[in-house]
Design a protein around this nucleic acid. Structure first.
Lengths: 206, 206
DNA sequence: TTAACTAACTTTACAGTGTTAAGTATCTTT
DNA sequence: AAAGATACTTAACACTGTAAAGTTAGTTAA
């Protein structure tokens, strides 16, 4: 029965068109520009058609979020693999985290700053095998290597979450308050990383 | 001419009523609940009356933001003054920053996370003598004491901004993603502070 | 004292948002 | 050809922030 297949393909196709249009609007005009009616106009369907393919706007945001996490994971995973020490490998990963956020602010915003929680649970974003959970594991691994290397008794999970928060703080403030009188950006980032990483490696080392 | 005075007072009074209503709505129902029509209903005036007292919604948010910064400054300024060392005094201030954010999430959100930038400039928030600028100076001062005490050559401004970002990251993630599988909150905060502060104090100390 | 002016406030309206319910047209199956 | 499912649209609801015009009451000047 090729017809059923074709229908399925067509359905899948419009689903993708919706996500493509959403992504384009997001990256072109930012998060605030993204509206159901805007998406509808772009794909040349009525606004309510979208609801036949997605439960609501948050479900679209969720898919954009998952996509963004995939890109983020790949960006960070690719960074610093050739560095000689655990310390430098972790540093490269954190630096990549920050660079990703600053170079793709709208993607970053949708994953970490947008108010996405009404319909989308953290659990579904962190489901096993997802890029979010792989990113999390990857980070914990790099942190763990440093902890072992430095002979430091810190809890991996706590340390990873703290470092994540540190990086997120820099990204979100730089994105969200661009007109604050920041020191030179590169210096701020490097100082922030130095502080965090020195604090990690030398923790409990007298 | 007492009449002009009285009129001025009445005008000032309604202005305050509007801000009071806004604050109450914000603290009761959160940022998303705050609407011009909601404020109007609470003060028993028509929605457009508000526009005779405030340019737009952002100007109301701005005033709530300034208020929140005042509270935040006082909360943080009061913390740790009796601690014996610069290190512990800074630690207490950062801890207070985080505690303030977590205990008054809506106030925190409006000052650091809300998209307030269309009409309100950072410059007006940081104007000389404002609580925002006093908070900033206070933080730099405590950081500076630690830097001097530890004989560390880090730039005060960079270090302060980095530490601020670290704390903001923890607060904003804990507020914004409450359903993430965080480690026990107290442990996370303490670990984050340990890392940041050890990294600061031991920076460049071999 | 009456006419002009002004200040305070409301009504109406516009353009936008997410979303639901009902209706239509087309395509598939019996 | 009739029945049923699928895909899509139109109309509508309940919101949002905000601008323009209209109303009412109070103040001032002739």
């Amino acid at each position: 029965m090729g017809i059923v297949e074709r229908k399925k393909r067509q359905r899948e196709s419009l689903r993708h068109e919706i996500l493509d249009a959403s992504r384009e609007i997001l990256l072109a005009g930012g998060y605030a520009q993204l509206s159901m009616r805007g998406i509808a106009k772009r794909i040349e369907y009525s606004p309510t058609t979208i609801y036949l393919y997605f439960k609501n706007k948050d479900e679209i945001l969720y898919h954009l979020c998952v996509e963004a996490l995939e890109r983020q994971f790949e960006f960070i995973h690719a960074a610093g693999g050739d560095e000689p020490t655990p310390f430098l490998r972790l540093r490269a990963a954190l630096r990549a985290y920050i660079d990703f956020g600053l170079s793709e602010p709208d993607r970053y915003q949708i994953t970490y700053m947008a108010d996405i929680s009404r319909y989308v649970s953290m659990a579904s974003i962190l489901e096993q095998g997802s890029f979010a959970s792989r990113l999390r594991e990857f980070m914990c691994q790099r942190v763990n290597e440093v902890l072992i290397d430095a002979g430091c008794a810190l809890d991996v999970e706590s340390a990873s979450q703290a470092l994540w928060a540190h990086c997120h703080g820099m990204v979100s403030l730089l994105i969200g308050r661009p007109d604050f009188p920041w020191v030179e950006r590169e210096r701020l980032i490097e100082t922030g990383l130095d502080i965090s990483l020195n604090g990690l490696a030398r923790h409990g080392a007298g």
